[in-house]
Amino acid sequence: MKPLLAIRGLAKSYGAVAALRGVDLDVGEREFLVVLGATGSGKTTLLRSIAGLLAPDAGTIELGGRAANALSPAERDIAYVFQNFSLYPSMTVRENLAFPLRAPGRRLEPAVVDERVARAAGLLRIERLLERPARRLSGGEMQRVAIGRAIVREPRLFLMDEPLSNLDAKLREELRVELAGLARELGAPVVWVTHDHAEALSLADRVAVLGDGRILQSGTPREVYERPADARVGRLVGFPPINVLAVAARDGWWSTDSGARIAPCAPDVPGGARAELGVRPEHVALTGGDGGARVKAVEALGPAALVVLDWCGSEVRALVEAGGPQRAGDSVAPRVDAALACVWRNQPL
């Protein structure tokens, strides 16, 4: 199937600073794609280029099989939800929702406008806010209205620029769950940009990790979480963060330079080969007795506890069940589930 959105070699610089250095990306007809990246990784630049708010320096953007580089934002028929809501402050919620439907050239019957506004308001549960001026809404309400304003248009693509990042944690969680359901219900393609890995893992059909102006990895949330392509991707996804250790193959083990044997290595790895080892904290098991590691601290996280280890001079975190026997100062024997560890070879730290 031909993708709805196809991006090839997209590049954009601001003066000497390159924000995007050749991004290739496809979005399918009904796909929920989350672009995950750290602050300053070029996420917003990518989204603004897709929307047509920004002209890229190089590369092509195709929408529905048609070259879209030269199209204005209006002609691209996409909806954009901004991080800072961007409601029209002097209008009521109803007027905000109806605004895109009253655009010249749309020629919608007033009854159709009313119906679509009512439907969007119902989906987002903002019916009681309809007559209120937009400037008198709370942050969460504003973002609901902003999303509603995107929905009413029935665009061919939704672009969401960190739509939840200006909300407090509780509201973010709530709205995230709700939007995931809404996206499935509407079945519309979404490009959602965020730096929050939880959003990426919970919302996405597919996650594209953006770093250094390129797509570092693209795959299902599971793939990205379990098999990150490199340490940068690994660090960006998951909490508590992944352990990244510089190791070398010695006597059939991946060992740190200080001598900690982390995990057995495959038989075909030549001795002395260097690699980075990515180990998720939940894949480190702890048993009692002297195994060369010392507990530096134990941090209770509610359902689990994070144990910070000094493993022959390397700091390693292990996620264990809450209420375990480990105390600071204890000696423990950590064991890494080798099948779940990621080995990134020939990559500098």
């Binding site: 204005s72 934002p73 954009y80 901004f82 655009a103 010249p104 304003r149």
Partner: peptide, 9 residues
């Protein structure tokens, strides 16, 4: 920008 995307004249 929002207005531009919303096709406002």
């Amino acid at each position: 920008e929002a207005a531009e995307i919303d096709r406002a004249g």
